[in-house]
């Protein structure tokens, strides 16, 4: 497969996953704020954790729901907004249209046009939109369309290099975003370490789990909600498909499949190429940790570290497979 094409497929999948997770973030924040109308501002941390506070404040005066929702959903100048992500996903798809299935392309095209037209609804009724994500709930709609996209990738593309790059892209992105969503909620829900360990079947922790479709699966495994268990489940679980550890294990199999297809591992006699090594190390690191260790070291520090390591993996993948020749 052409390196450029592999790169575009990888980013197409990443951008869709990014849009989906942003929709999940906004969705869960809306629920939080509905339950606590007078409590602290839930919208500000959302901007803080996505890491673009500076740009936001250049464009808006305050962290109102309307401003935050518009910024994260429709702002074209904010490169991670849902609309910007979909535009980028679509541009990537367009440049490799012959390498993906027509179903994938047509769905993505439709998806993009759908979000574009939702922008008009937003203009028409800003307040209602910000609170409820419009009558037909845009964010749920984005989530569902991302899932359809995934389903189309999985059911219409051969398990060749192209599919593995798509899979790699979406799983690395998902690992990153699951950790972020934990980060953003963790410090609003848990201002002090003293709360750790108390059993409280808190509505808000349930919402957090729901936001990554994890509530029911968590219940099956642990029944009662405790912080270390939630952390364990979202970071270290090997079976739940949005848990960081699960994502990395699956990403590793795709990376291996890609490497096995070429001659990438033979150059200096090592068993794994540099990209595989980097990812294997990260998996091993997670395996050596327990949830309580993560909490004691500090959730935010841990998530920061994890994200840096994920970036390293992405860089290695790039230099190994996508940057070819002179």
């Amino acid at each position: 497969m052409l390196s450029r094409v592999a790169d575009s497929i990888y980013w197409m999948a990443r951008y869709i996953e990014r849009a989906e997770n942003l929709a999940r973030f906004i969705d869960v924040t809306q629920y939080f704020s509905l339950d606590q109308p007078d409590a602290t501002n839930h919208w500000k941390p959302l901007i803080q954790v996505t890491g673009d506070e500076e740009l936001f404040l250049k464009r808006h005066d305050a962290f109102t729901p309307e401003a935050v929702v518009h910024f994260l959903t429709f702002d074209r100048e904010y490169s991670h907004s849902i609309l910007a992500s979909l535009t980028a996903a679509r541009e990537n798809a367009r440049s490799v249209r012959e390498a993906i299935s027509s179903e994938v392309w047509e769905h993505l095209n439709d998806f993009y046009h759908g979000v574009k037209s939702a922008e008009q609804q937003f203009q028409d009724d800003v307040r209602a939109f910000a609170r409820y994500g419009s009558a037909d709930n845009l964010f749920d709609w984005v989530k569902r369309n991302s899932l359809i996209f995934e389903g189309l990738i999985d059911s219409t593309m051969s398990r060749g290099i192209g599919w593995h790059f798509a899979n790699l892209g979406r799983l690395l992105e998902r690992a990153d975003k699951t950790s972020r969503i934990l980060d953003v909620k963790y410090f609003t829900l848990l201002p002090s370490l003293d709360h750790v360990g108390t059993t409280f079947d808190d509505l808000q922790w349930s919402e957090l789990l729901r936001s990554v479709s994890a509530f029911e699966m968590y219940r099956k495994q642990y029944q009662t909600i405790t912080v270390p268990r939630v952390v364990q489940f979202l970071v270290l679980d090997e079976m739940f498909p949005r848990a960081v550890r699960y994502c990395l294990a699956e990403a590793f199999s795709s990376l291996k499949a890609i490497s096995n297809n070429g001659l990438k591992r033979t150059d200096d006699g090592r068993l794994l190429n540099r990209a595989e090594q980097e990812l294997a190390l990260l998996c091993a690191e997670l395996d050596s940790l327990g949830a309580t260790t993560i909490i004691q070291r500090g959730m935010h520090q841990f998530v920061d570290h994890l994200q840096r390591r994920l970036n390293d993996v992405g860089d290695r993948v790039y230099s190994q497979f996508l940057l070819v020749g002179p």
Partner: peptide, 9 residues
Amino acid sequence: VFMRTTNGL
């Protein structure tokens, strides 16, 4: 002429 692929040139 070669093309740049994930397997090299």
